[in-house]
């Protein structure tokens, strides 16, 4: 296995999350009850997604500066894992919402925002498969990926702050769209941040597997350059 220390770190951090996340004492807030523990599993999906999509963006920019097919493969793999995390985040959010907000989909600005963002990224995957020419595909999808990222970011970071929301951090409420600062006590932070790092590392790991497969698949093209 290649460069294993951070992979072991991912496993350790997630095992820690999955034990401490269930066992620590949590504050009782509103009708959340024990579901506040979802903070350790649902929210890191979104944090991980942001990191992975940002890495994807960087490789897309890199590709446009230096058109090596390798960077396109990197950008695609990280975007795919980011999209996967987004889908999981949306599903877990809907389950959580059913039992706290009363319905799985309440047209909360943040739900709508991420749904649009995910659709934009689905279009990225469709676009990739629609262009048969490899170099053209890489270039067009790199440009589109940059465009998608800068729509995605306002949709999840800015819009939710401007309007009233069931999520923490809406208009007139303190905190940010991810978590409400005051509600997150010290012990919860001790589980939450390792969880974010762990999920992000696992996402990176899965992305690198995808990358390595594609590097082998396209090795003739890569060597030709």
């Amino acid at each position: 296995m290649r460069k294993s220390w951070w992979k072991i770190l991912a496993a350790v951090l997630l095992l820690y999350t999955f034990t401490a996340g269930f066992l620590i004492k949590v504050p009782h807030i509103g009708n959340l009850k024990e579901t506040i523990r979802n903070l350790f599993f649902h929210v890191p999906m979104w944090f991980g997604q942001i990191v992975l999509l940002t890495i994807s963006l960087i490789y897309s920019i890199w590709y446009l500066r230096n058109p090596n097919l390798k960077y396109d493969i990197y950008a695609e793999a990280f975007a795919k894992t980011g999209i996967l995390m987004g889908i999981l985040g949306l599903i877990t959010g809907a389950i959580w919402a059913t039992y706290t907000w009363g319905e799985p989909w309440s047209n909360d600005p943040k739900q709508i925002g991420v749904a649009i963002a995910l659709l934009i990224y689905f279009a990225y995957l469709v676009l990739r498969n629609a262009v048969p020419d490899i170099d053209k595909r890489a270039k067009v999808s790199a440009v589109y990926n940059i465009f998608a990222y800068f729509i995605y970011l306002p949709l999840i970071m800015i819009l939710p702050r401007l309007v009233e929301s069931l999520h923490p951090g809406g208009k007139g409420v303190q905190g940010n769209p991810g978590l409400n600062g005051a509600d997150l006590d010290a012990t919860m932070r001790l589980v939450f941040w390792p969880a974010v790092i762990g999920w992000t590392l696992l996402g990176t790991w899965i992305s690198t597997l995808n990358i390595r497969i594609n590097l082998i698949r396209d090795k003739n093209l890569l060597n030709a350059e």
Partner: peptide
Amino acid sequence: ICVTILAGLFLYVVSIDRKIG
């Protein structure tokens, strides 16, 4: 149960990683 599922997932990812290697 959750730790078991997680451990299983990690073992699977490790095995894919080694296969690709």
